[in-house]
Design a protein around this nucleic acid. Structure first.
Lengths: 188, 188
DNA sequence: TCTGCCATGTAAGTTGTTACATGATTAT
DNA sequence: ATAATCATGTAACAACTTACATGGCAGA
């Protein structure tokens, strides 16, 4: 209503959250979105660069050019006071749980039109993927979050996102197992 | 490559899967995407109508006009042989697990910049939402899936998507509890 | 020499969201 | 009367994906 500026910009907030934790370049952000930030958001480098431009136009972030020997310059982005203020306000606004959108579940739902073998193969593929993620997450837990009670406050919150990843992958693995059990009762 | 037609169309496949199970109108589809189909996909009615037009242009679905007394006509959509063939092929192509994108996790990640009270309130809000979904799912389980072993094949697969929903909500609830426990160790 | 990493972008297309639009029937 | 439900759409915009584009440096 009225003038504007009341948009959603989900990615923008994920970027702000990442930059508040540690200022970095677009390139580094893209890598972080593939790693620890990936516990809660994913984005391609193209999205990230575009969003960084927008955020800088709005003065929610600012950048500093870093000259590097033998490498392209990098732009180091950090969140401005204005940006942090907006992030705080956004955090205070209630949001709803993300609806599920999952290709594998679509395939399972229509599973009866495909050979059992096909479904089973895809399931094993996903099982492996989830197992891999889970062990990565557990390694991170052991390496950086051994004593959660003694972490600094920011660290505790980051640990909680990791815990969510662990719980999420565990849920998927348990479900994969359930599917396999029930598939065995179907002759094909 | 070569000529084309190799697009992703995630929503299209979700619609095909729903229509294979039971032909219906766009309006009914929208309702189903808010209910049982919502275990694996969500979409607004605008998306659905647009996608239905595209699918009919490609002859993956066909429609029949149903005249109704005292109500607007409805178009009953069903999947053609061609559509079912495409769906089968799509099911056989491997896909990757859906990356996480979740606003609440962004908020938690940056939780240290907000008052503890704000985080706690949002968490309780989500806890309630997940509790509600979980009990809805469990009711459905009791009502329609008491003896999974004796279900027809299609029913078994649909039950598996419901089981995923139950597992998913349970995971979130357990995590909410973990967060609350750790939040108590932070003075604020 | 070739692959991969560092570093940043543009262009085109698809998907998803929000708002607008219509019009009849049924229940409170 | 008023709101909710049935039933189907258009228009504009925001978000996301895929492909293309550049160019230097480091290591096998």
């Amino acid at each position: 209503m009225s003038s504007g500026e009341l948009k959603i910009m989900a990615l923008a907030h994920a970027i702000l959250a990442a930059l508040v934790e540690a200022p970095c370049s677009g390139y580094d952000l893209a890598k972080r979105f593939d790693g620890s930030v990936g516990f809660f958001w994913s984005a391609s480098h193209q999205q990230i660069y575009r969003e960084l431009s927008k955020l800088e136009d709005q003065a929610w972030i600012s950048s500093e050019s870093i000259l590097q020997a033998g490498r392209p310059d990098k732009r180091l982005y950090s969140v401005t006071d204005l940006g942090e203020q907006h992030l705080k306000e956004w955090i205070a606004q209630p949001c709803e749980p993300t609806p599920i959108k999952d290709d594998l579940l679509v395939k399972i739902f229509a599973g009866h039109i495909a050979p059992n073998q096909t479904i089973l193969a895809e399931l094993e593929h996903h099982q492996k993927a989830h197992q891999k993620k889970l062990s990565t997450y557990k390694e991170l837990e052991q390496r950086y979050f051994q004593n959660p009670q003694e972490l600094p406050e920011a660290g505790k919150f980051q640990y909680l996102t990791l815990l969510n990843g662990i719980s999420y992958e565990t849920h998927w693995l348990a479900w994969c197992y359930q599917v396999m059990e029930l598939l065995q009762t179907i002759e094909n």
